[in-house]
C-alpha cells in the first residue's frame, strides 16, 4: 500500500514537474495543479497507515485517521480556487499579449525593463514608477467613464 501510494505520488509529481518546464502557460498551470494534487495525496498518505479509508458506514474494521481526510478536503478547496485564479490570470495575459507562450511574455518583460533603464539613465528627473503624464490622465479619464456604472 505504502509503495503503491508513493509510486502514484511520484508519477503525478513527475508529470507536473515536466509540464512546468513547458513554454505553454496552460501546461504550466496544469503542471502546478498536478504537483499540488500530489501534495494532497501525500497528506492523505500520511494518515493511511492504520487501516481502511474512514468512509461511512464503518463495518467494525480498523480505519485510518479521518483528520487527514479533512485536511485534504481543505487543501483541495484552496487548490481549486487558486486554479481558477491562475486561469483568469492566463486569460488576462492572453488578452494583453495575444500569446500564452512564456518566451513572448519574457520578451515583453525584457522590453519593459530596458525601457525602464533608459528612462532612468537618461532622464533622471522623471524618476521611476511615475508613468508618463499622458498615460495617467488617460487612466483617469477611463476611471471617470467607469464611475457612473
Amino acid at each position: 500500500m505504502i509503495l503503491a501510494v508513493s509510486i502514484v505520488i511520484a508519477v503525478i509529481f513527475g508529470s507536473g514537474a515536466f509540464l512546468i518546464l513547458q513554454r505553454d502557460l496552460l501546461r504550466l498551470i496544469v503542471g502546478i495543479l498536478l504537483i499540488s494534487n500530489a501534495s494532497i495525496l501525500f497528506v492523505m498518505a500520511s494518515g493511511l497507515s492504520r487501516g481502511k479509508a474512514p468512509i461511512y458506514p464503518l463495518d467494525g474494521a480498523s480505519v485510518s485517521d479521518p483528520l487527514v481526510q479533512a485536511m485534504a478536503l481543505t487543501a483541495l478547496v484552496i487548490g481549486s480556487s487558486t486554479a481558477a485564479l491562475l486561469l483568469a490570470l492566463v486569460y488576462r495575459l492572453y488578452v494583453s499579449h495575444r500569446s500564452i507562450d512564456i518566451e513572448d511574455l519574457s520578451t515583453a518583460e525584457m522590453e519593459a525593463a530596458d525601457a525602464l533603464e533608459r528612462v532612468n539613465v537618461t532622464e533622471f528627473d522623471r524618476g521611476f514608477r511615475d508613468e508618463p503624464v499622458q498615460e495617467e490622465q488617460a487612466d483617469e479619464r477611463e476611471l471617470e467613464k467607469e464611475e457612473p456604472r
Binding site: I32, I35, S36, A38, S39, I40, F42, V43, A45, S46, G47, S49, L67, V68, M71, A75
Partner: peptide, 13 residues
C-alpha cells in the same frame, strides 16, 4: 505552498 504542505503532512505523520 506545495512544499509547505508536504512538510505539514510529513510532520503530522
Amino acid at each position: 505552498s506545495v512544499v509547505f504542505l508536504f512538510g505539514i503532512a510529513a510532520i503530522y505523520h
